[in-house]
Design a protein around this nucleic acid. Structure first.
Lengths: 345, 345
DNA sequence: CTGTTAGCGCGTTCAC
DNA sequence: GTGAACGCGCTAACAG
């Protein structure tokens, strides 16, 4: 057990205690075979008895590495964002696992690296070997400029043709198609879309929705697309207005589970029930989706694989390799809210 | 804009370009007034034109600091934990803000510092100036041993008398009391408790629940306490068993919102509706609580203040001061599930 | 006001 | 097999 009062031990201390030079200690602790088995064992035991650990900062300075990955994630404290929170936490967890597996640390930041904030660029200030950016959001221009200037950056989000940076994300267009065609397969014909099409991910989901309608030979009614930067409250209000209007609809494809839940609540308060009167499909498969009432039919993104892919791509970039973008396949999770199953299983 | 091919600039480069010594550059960039206003301006402009930033690693080595705080948080990827995920994400966000405000980086780890994993102890390996540990969970013994050996550690969780480390957390006992007495004020008399009492936080909530019953002069019926490490699925099953049993109850106090939601779903499927037939109060005020149907009455912990308090205490510890524990007051959030309001507002 | 010198803790030549 | 010397990039003490 360490003594609190004591100064932090240094390699020189261990060398002195062992009666050898610093170099030998360094080699022994690094497991080098340039040192005699016997002395190595003696030194490692001495070090662990003294509770000594190599100072990573000094080591990294010498090695010109940081063994640290920065993850930039848009957690907004003030207002609730559209992209659901549980999704982010799962992704952080997946990233933490994948980064720890490679013996690196994970620096978490809410400040984008292109911010003018002094300490913002972890790459240039030598605090990280690479950066993972979650969500392209609306800051496309800044992001592009940043990734043009820096390699060793990967992005989670939608794939857009003109990007020159590595992107990992799920196939949002296919996800939208899956959702809409499932509703169509249940006999629904007038499917309303609720989502903010100015976000690239959502735009692709909407495009997939239109693909499915086209495949089914159904004309797209623009009246059924509700395009707004929804938070729960606004989603509730929009759904309320929709159900009170004279627009006919028999299904909802919501661009997020949060929107879906809010819409269902608004409908119920107006006497319209899911899934009997209206089928609803959400997006994300957030934690509470399975335990909502009715349990939400939704599109699931493979978060764990996504996290692993992000980290794998970033390390390839760090090694100097060229990487191409990764597209993950979304999955349809059928529960109650679409009406395919009459009751909770 | 930086050139990718180019090696990272060093302070010596800037010194050469400016025709001064490294020391002068260092002083100029640090805003020292030991340097002439004119040369300082010239150097800062030169540096920013060259897109140079001080290497933090080298700086920190020299200064014997890391300007980094490690946050250890038990995100489990495999199974869904009881403590609700949105709560964690909010806390991470609050911590990120508070740490960034003090110009420090935040290292996020899932591995507890007392783990035998080589890189685990960020304090000893010089990767962090302090550690924030979220949740005492069931690892009380390890935690105690660790905090006994290391100052510069603060813990989020329940306050327990015999701890010798700094703890920040909300008053779980008061939270439990608030929940139960609210139910009692609505005329409910047989309140069931669902939660895992082996977790210190939950145990205190249960104690508060009993306090409220005692205050109201109602005998505690042990038959109404359901003690299990609930996940959603198990909570659903327990609620189902309860409603199908011949145990009489008219209210539920759930130790988490997730448990509350699962119970409400189970009741509904058995033809028992909240809040008409049974009043339900949850705990945490997670994101979806407001958008559940019925909207959940719950106990809210002041997460943002909690994050700020954790960081404040930790920095005090780092400065060598002595800190005492912080207790935050929980708040009752009244919505629909308890029956106090007939409809969504 | 500025430059020179020294060293933070470590890994890695190059000798022996 | 081991040690001495050097330098990673930076800041602080000391001169001038």
């Amino acid at each position: 057990m360490r003594n609190n009062k004591q100064e932090e031990l240094t390699m020189a201390d261990i060398a002195r205690m062992a009666g050898v030079s610093e170099s030998t200690v360094s080699r022994a602790l690094a497991g080098s075979d340039l040192v005699a088995e016997k002395t190595r064992k003696r030194i490692t035991e001495l070090a662990s008895a003294a509770d000594y650990t190599v100072n990573e900062g000094a080591r990294n300075l010498r090695l010109k590495k940081t063994k640290t990955i920065e993850v930039v994630i848009p957690i907004e404290s003030h207002h609730r964002q559209h992209i659901s929170e549980p999704f982010f936490l799962d992704l952080i967890g997946a990233l933490a696992d994948a980064i720890a597996d490679r013996n690196h640390d994970m620096l978490l930041s809410k400040i984008p690296p292109w911010s003018t904030d002094k300490r913002s660029n972890a790459l240039v200030s030598g605090r990280a070997d690479g950066i993972i950016i979650i969500g392209q959001g609306r800051r496309r221009a800044e992001l592009r400029e940043f990734t043009r200037a820096h390699r060793r950056v990967v992005v989670w989000g939608a794939h857009i043709d003109d990007e020159d940076h590595a992107v990992v994300g799920s196939d949002n267009r296919e996800g939208g198609r899956l959702a809409a065609s499932h509703l169509l397969s249940l006999g629904r014909k007038r499917i309303a879309f609720l989502g903010d099409v100015s976000l690239p991910e959502i735009k692709l989901r909407h495009r997939g929705y239109m693909d499915a309608l086209k495949e089914a030979g159904i004309a797209v009614d623009e009246e059924l697309t509700f395009n707004a930067p929804f938070d729960s409250e606004e989603a509730y209000a929009t759904a309320k207005a929709l159900v009170e209007s004279n627009i006919k609809f028999d299904a909802i494809f919501a661009a997020s589970d949060v929107i879906a839940m809010s819409a269902i609540a608004a409908f119920r308060n107006a006497g319209v029930n899911a899934p009997q009167d209206v089928s609803v499909v959400g997006y994300d498969d957030i934690f509470s989706a399975a335990w909502y009432s009715p349990a939400l039919t939704t599109i699931s993104q493979s978060i764990h694989e996504g996290g692993a892919a992000l980290v794998k791509s970033l390390f390839a970039l760090i090694e100097g390799e060229t990487v191409s973008s990764v597209v993950l396949q979304p999955k349809l999770i059928v529960r109650q809210s679409c009406g395919a199953h009459p009751t909770r299983t």
